[in-house]
Design a protein around this nucleic acid. Structure first.
Length: 126
DNA sequence: AATGTGACACAAT
DNA sequence: TATTGTGCCACAT
């Protein structure tokens, strides 16, 4: 019985099945990125079967920051060039680079140095 | 309801 | 080689 007065409980925005799975999957992979390593949006998207949906990965990360930025190392996710494209979405534009440096990753001019050396591909490593 | 924008990536020109 | 256009899907206006 519902009895719920008028507006139901409303589990939350975008709580529908399907899209929520994708987002959660992205978070799962992001958490699997080892310390001192980085991956790319495209790599995650491809691993999930959405090779051309890198943008959605970014959106999922954005949500992670507000929801559980502490458990989802979004700073380890950069674009395919190793560029810290998502730095503007962090508390401060420098947070992303600082965190990477704290993990021993060299960051130069908003870009990961030796990106390939630190690159972690879920399709290959996982 | 429709249009525009976006933490990307790739093909075509 | 650089630029432009397209696909992807969700969200903001």
């Amino acid at each position: 019985m519902k009895s719920l007065s008028t507006g139901n409980a409303d589990p939350g925005p975008t709580a529908r099945p399907g899209s929520g799975d994708f987002e959660r999957d992205v978070h799962a992979v992001a958490r699997l990125v080892p310390f001192g390593r980085v991956t790319s949006y495209g790599a995650i998207a491809r691993y999930l079967g959405a090779a051309r949906s890198g943008r959605m990965v970014g959106w999922a990360m954005n949500r992670a920051l507000g929801a559980e930025g502490a458990v989802v190392p979004a700073h380890r996710v950069v674009n395919r060039h190793g560029l810290l494209t998502g730095r503007m979405h962090f508390p401060t534009p420098t947070t992303m680079g600082q965190r990477l440096r704290a993990e021993g990753i060299e960051v130069r001019d908003e870009q990961v140095v030796d990106f390939e050396r630190h690159f972690w591909d879920p399709s290959t490593e996982l």
